[in-house]
């Protein structure tokens, strides 16, 4: 049985005109195995961030639910930690305190020294030694997200949810942090569910990539397996013979096919058309 199941989840928002609802996505099911790195790519507005927030328990689904390790996971919890696009570091706390507040919550019976040692370990893991006492305002975007990653990994969650984690970081730094993420992930092998716009990032990091059609009423159109052997690095993945096939396939999808899925949902005679995502392997 899969470790994390996003089970027949639908989300409706009240429509702008007041009457009726807008369907963001309907009846999405996704199964992620333990230790798997799964990514969702789609255009803005396809509801992928909503999907991630539902997985985190920060938003409630209109229908369906989340099953983690055989149990329903409702509401947010320490087992599903989010790395936020805009970092979500508390600006009034130092780097150390931002991580320590998470560690103290995850391990409430630890002593002060244990917490400090644990925080120190993760600060070193992301290479932020010397910045412990700094406030987030004094850090660059890349360093802020390193703190975000350290905070997320430090509580050793069952599932890591990455919400476009590198979207606000400049391209060069982004590459470096992606590789740091790979190293951290290699050490822990958490189950990871990531949402991104960046095709290269998705291929570099993921085992499977979900391609979503445009919203409203978006759905998973294809699931692309990334069979590039691990460990990966930015330098070696592009040498892989499948890299550009996968990349071209995804970009073709995003450019040509993503908007073709708009008719999804109800068929002409009112019966529900069941779309099964297309499995793509190279």
């Amino acid at each position: 049985m899969a470790y994390l199941i996003i089970d027949h989840v639908s989300k409706f928002f009240p429509g702008h005109e007041g009457d009726g609802t807008v369907c963001i996505f309907k009846d999405v099911t996704l199964k992620i195995d333990q230790g798997e790195f799964v990514t969702v790519i789609g255009h803005s507005g396809c509801g992928k961030s909503t999907w991630l927030n539902i997985s985190a328990g920060l938003e409630t689904p209109s229908e369906g639910g989340i099953i983690l390790n055989g149990r329903e996971a409702s509401g947010p919890g320490l087992d599903r930690m989010v790395v936020f696009q805009n970092f979500a570091l508390m600006p009034w706390l130092s780097v150390f305190e931002n991580i320590a507040i998470a560690v103290r919550s995850a391990y409430p019976d630890w002593t002060k020294d244990q917490v400090a040692a644990h925080v120190k370990k993760y600060i070193e893991l992301v290479g932020l030694q010397g910045a412990e006492r700094k406030r987030p305002v004094a850090l660059s975007g890349g360093m802020k997200q390193r703190v975000g990653l350290a905070r997320a990994f430090s509580i050793e969650p069952k599932v890591l949810l990455l919400d476009e984690p590198f979207a606000q970081i400049d391209a060069l730094t982004r590459g470096t942090i992606q590789e740091e993420l790979i190293q951290m992930w290699n050490a822990t092998r958490n189950t990871v569910f990531m949402v991104t716009h960046d095709v290269d990032e998705a291929i570099l990091l993921s085992d499977r990539i979900m391609l979503m059609t445009n919203g409203p009423s978006s759905r998973i159109a294809e699931i692309v397996d990334v069979n590039i052997p691990r460990p990966r690095s930015r330098e070696t993945v592009i040498e892989d013979r499948n890299y550009y096939k996968v990349r071209n396939h995804i970009i073709h999808f995003l450019v040509r096919h993503a908007k073709h899925g708009e008719t999804g949902g109800e068929g002409e005679l009112g019966q529900t058309i069941k779309y099964e995502p297309l499995q793509v392997t190279f």
């Binding site: 509401g75 947010p76 936020f84 979500a88 508390m90 919550s105 509580i155």
Partner: peptide
């Protein structure tokens, strides 16, 4: 207050 701060607080089960 920025929603993310509250999100972090609720994930951390404060």
């Amino acid at each position: 207050l920025k929603k993310e701060y509250l999100h972090v607080a609720s994930i951390l089960q404060l």
